[in-house]
Amino acid sequence: MNKKVVSLCQLAFRAGKVSYGSRLIPSIQTRQAKLVCLSPFCGKNRTKKLHDKCAFYHIPCLTLADWDAISKKSIQSFAILDEGFAQAILEEMKG
């Protein structure tokens, strides 16, 4: 994965512009989430639920390969709440 994507995700964590855990699904439903990122080790049920929620609310959902470099916490998915971070990550993933 691109190192710039990792650094953008780390910056979003430091800036407090992420939602994870029990706040993840409500942030998708209220459309606060601009991008949802999943670990490749996320369970099948959780992955399907998040993909379905993101598809319904028209929020991009990515599976990121280099998960250990992004977060040292034991989380499997998170949402980026800032439009700028989300657009920068999506542009880096396309390019």
Rank of each mutant, 00 (worst) to 15 (best):
K48Y: 06
A12T: 10
S19T: 09
G16W: 03
K48E: 11
P26R: 12
C61V: 15
F56Q: 09
V5M: 13
R14Q: 14
C37G: 03
Y20M: 07
H51I: 15
L38R: 00
I59N: 03
C61P: 01
I59L: 02
N2E: 07
L38T: 00
T47I: 08
S7T: 12
L35V: 11
T47N: 06
Q10G: 00
S39F: 08
H58F: 06
S7G: 00
D52Q: 13
F13G: 04
N45I: 13
K4C: 04
L38G: 01
L64C: 00
G21F: 15
I59R: 08
G21V: 14
K44Y: 10
L24R: 06
M1V: 09
P60N: 11
I59W: 04
Q32G: 04
A33I: 01
V36G: 06
L50G: 00
S22R: 14
Y57A: 06
L11S: 14
L24Q: 07
R31A: 07
K48C: 02
P26S: 11
L24H: 03
R14M: 15
L64S: 03
G43Y: 06
S27Y: 00
I59D: 05
C9I: 05
Q10I: 10
L24F: 02
R23V: 12
P26A: 14
K3G: 04
K3M: 04
Y57M: 00
I25T: 07
C9W: 01
A33W: 01
L35C: 13
C61I: 09
K4N: 14
L8S: 11
F13Q: 10
H51P: 00
Q32M: 12
S22V: 15
R46I: 12
Q29H: 12
K49T: 10
A12I: 04
K48M: 10
P26K: 11
S22E: 15
H58V: 01
D52R: 06
I28R: 09
Q29Y: 10
K49C: 09
S39V: 01
A33Q: 06
S7F: 01
V18M: 06
C54Y: 04
M1E: 11
K3Q: 13
K48A: 12
V5S: 12
L35G: 06
M1L: 06
K3N: 11
L35Q: 10
L24W: 08
A33Y: 01
K44R: 14
Q32I: 09
D52V: 03
T30S: 15
R31C: 05
L64V: 14
T63M: 12
K44C: 05
D52L: 11
S27W: 02
Y20T: 14
L35Y: 07
G43N: 09
V6L: 13
R23M: 11
M1S: 13
V6G: 05
P40S: 06
R46F: 09
V6E: 11
K3W: 02
I28A: 00
R31P: 01
A33N: 05
F41H: 13
K48G: 02
Q10P: 00
K53H: 08
V18F: 05
K53R: 07
G21Y: 13
Y57T: 04
P26T: 05
Q29N: 13
C61D: 05
Q10C: 05
S7L: 10
S19L: 10
